[in-house]
C-alpha cells in the first residue's frame, strides 16, 4: 500500500502542476481547470499549476464578502467550502496523506539523515488557530476603506506560495524582482523555518500550521471512509505508534484512530501484525477488509 501511496503522491504532484509550457509563455496557466480546487496545498500562482488552491480561494472569498454583498453577489466561499466538504465527507484527511504536493515534499525532507524531534501535543491546536485567525477572522474583519480584506495566510505565511510561485516567478520576471521587499524576505524566512522544521520533525507543517489540513481533519470522525481499531486483536506492540508520521497513539487509548490529526497515510493499517486496524467504508464488513489485506 505504501508503494501505491507514493505513486499517487507523484501523480498528484504532476497533475496539480501539469502546465509545462510556462517557460515559453509570458502568463501563468489560464485554462478552465483553474475553476477546480485541487485537494491539497498547491499555489495557483505557481507557473505550472493547472488547478486552484482551495485555501487561497477560500481566503479571497471571505476577504471579498462585504464588497460582493454590497453589489448583491452571494459570494461567501460556498463553492470552495462545498468542494472541501465533498472530499472531507468522503474520505476525511486522505488528501493530506495521498494527494497534497506539499505533504509529499515534507516526507522527502524528513528523509534527510539528521537528529529528529517529536512535537508536544499542544502543537495540534496550531492548524485550527491558523484556520480561525489567518483564514477566517483577519480576512473578514481587517478590511480597507471599500471593505476588501486580505488573504492573510497567503500573504504572511504560506510556504507553498513562496516556494512554488514566489521563487520561480521572481527568477523568471525581472520586473517582479524589483518589487521584492521586506514582505518577500520575511515570507522567505518563514519558508526556510518551516522547511527546517520538516527536516527534523515529520510532517511539521501539517501538524503545526496547515489550515487546509485542519479543515479536512474536521471530517475525519464523520467521513464515509474511516479507520477501525479492534482492541481485542491488538497485541500492544506499538508498531502503529512508531510508524505514524503524526505521532498518533491509538493502541493505548491516548488518541482516537480517527483523530483530526491523522493524515490517513494508512501506514498503521499496513504494519499492524495482528490485523487490529481495518479500513471501514460504510458497509464493508471488517473480515472482507482483512481478507483483501491478506491477499494484497
Amino acid at each position: 500500500m505504501e508503494r501505491g501511496r507514493r505513486r499517487i503522491q507523484i501523480f498528484s504532484l504532476l497533475l496539480a502542476n501539469s502546465y509545462w509550457l510556462f517557460p515559453w509563455k509570458d502568463r501563468i496557466f489560464q485554462g478552465w481547470t483553474k475553476r477546480i480546487c485541487f485537494p491539497g496545498l498547491n499555489c495557483y500562482s505557481c507557473p505550472a499549476a493547472a488547478f486552484s488552491c482551495p485555501l487561497g480561494g477560500l481566503q479571497n472569498a471571505i476577504a471579498g464578502i462585504r464588497p460582493a454583498f454590497a453589489v448583491h453577489q452571494l459570494h461567501f466561499g460556498a463553492y470552495v467550502l462545498g468542494t472541501i466538504g465533498i472530499f472531507g465527507s468522503l474520505m476525511g484527511r486522505i488528501p493530506c496523506g495521498w494527494f497534497c504536493p506539499f505533504g509529499y515534499l515534507q516526507e522527502w525532507l524528513y528523509r534527510i539523515p539528521v537528529r529528529k524531534f517529536s512535537l508536544p501535543r499542544i502543537f495540534r491546536w496550531g492548524p485550527y488557530l491558523f484556520l480561525l485567525f489567518f483564514v477566517v477572522l483577519l480576512p473578514l474583519f481587517v478590511v480597507d476603506v471599500v471593505g476588501f480584506g486580505s488573504a492573510w495566510f497567503c500573504k504572511f505565511v504560506c510556504p507553498a506560495g513562496t516556494l512554488e510561485a514566489g521563487l520561480p516567478l521572481l527568477a523568471m520576471e525581472p520586473g517582479l524582482r524589483r518589487l521584492a521587499g521586506m514582505l518577500f524576505f520575511s515570507k522567505l524566512a518563514v519558508l526556510f523555518a518551516i522547511l527546517a522544521g520538516c527536516v527534523v520533525t515529520n510532517r511539521f507543517f501539517c501538524r503545526t500550521i496547515c489550515p487546509l489540513g485542519a479543515l479536512f481533519g474536521l471530517f475525519n470522525r464523520v467521513s464515509l471512509l474511516r479507520l477501525r481499531f479492534d482492541s481485542d486483536r491488538c497485541v500492544q506492540c506499538s508498531a502503529c505508534r512508531r510508524i505514524c508520521p503524526v505521532d498518533i497513539s491509538f493502541f493505548d487509548g491516548t488518541d482516537s484512530i480517527n483523530s483530526g490529526a491523522c493524515i490517513r497515510c494508512m501506514r498503521c493499517y499496513t504494519i499492524c501484525p495482528a490485523g487490529a486496524v481495518s479500513i471501514d467504508l460504510y458497509d464493508v464488513r471488517d473480515h472482507t477488509v482483512q481478507e483483501e489485506k491478506g491477499g494484497s
Binding site: 486552484s52 487561497g56 459570494h75 500573504k155 506560495g161 513562496t162 515570507k187
Partner: peptide, 18 residues
Amino acid sequence: EASALWQKAVSVCLSCIG
C-alpha cells in the same frame, strides 16, 4: 463563485508570492 475563483487563479497573486 467558480468564475470568480478562476479570475483570481489566472493572474499572478501578489500576496501569494510575497
